[in-house]
Amino acid sequence: MSFGRFVFTRSLQGLGVIWGVITVVFALRFVTPGDPINAVAPLDATQETRRAIAAELGLDQPLYIQYGQYLFDLMVGDMGFSYIKGQEVTGLVFARVPATVELAVTATIVAIALSIPLGVISATRRNEPVDYGATLFSLAGISTPNFWLGIMMILILAVEFGIFHTSGRETDLGDVVISVVGPEPFISTLASWLKYITLPSIALGTYFMALITRLTRSGMLDELGKAYVTASRAKGIPETLVRYKHVLRNTLIPVITVLGLQLGTLIGGAVITEAVFSWPGLGTLVIQSINLRDWPVLQGSLIVIGTSFVLVNILVDTVYAYLDPQVVYD
């Protein structure tokens, strides 16, 4: 199988999963206790009104027509109307996407940038104090609830020392980019952005930092014991080259797989991190829509979350196939 064909097959498969995601979300409205009309109709609505509402929303149609209509609407980007806000769901949901992406990407970058070197150092200095420190850190990191970590950081770094903001997102990454060319001074815009993004991204990223440190460490230790390492050393290849060019590259392959699988954890973590820091992203929208029983908004958010999970995983698999050509021939 060629690389191009692999990507094509994988994308088709992903499309199937997205269809599954949509079907599950469509089915969700039927696990709601009672008639879906109850969620929209006023409590004292007459039978007449209820029937009118049902007709308006297409709820009086046979199931397969409702399902077909739902699929068709989604294809043209129509996710229906919010019960509460009376706005189009598509607009409401996509307005929240940049904030969540900004948070998730920053957290991932911080996590990867710190954890891979830490894992490498830990493995190459096995049983030295640095290794114990890294092991302890990664154990604590995978065992700490991220929302609690967030609150503790707010308590110490925001309330007590006033270094960061406790919540919100008044300055975003877009503002920082614009300030490079625009009238706003760059440094102060950047500083303002950092005051908002730092704590949430650490709260969200710590679990991944810990997980990747653990994986990198154990992967490096496995690889360092293999015959090709001894052979390379015997050939006189400098140790730095052996470690970083050969060993690290082979270590990163399983790390990438786990990262892809854990992407759901990242998005789930973003939901609760957003709740702690009042971050105006998809997560806060999900919680809000549940508390307000605004099902169309919940459904729209779930579809966007599920679909992006599938898309990012296709991307991860592509990178994986590129790094490890064996995958393509499976």
């Binding site: 599954g20 696990v31 759901g264 789930g268 029983r293 599920g306």
Partner: peptide, 24 residues
């Protein structure tokens, strides 16, 4: 495996919150 793929596409926390929101 396809069911598992679809199931994994929803983060546990998000799915749990949605189901509890629906079921009470």
């Amino acid at each position: 495996m396809r069911i598992a793929d679809v199931s994994l596409a929803f983060p546990s926390l998000v799915l749990a919150v949605a189901l509890i929101g629906l079921w009470g």
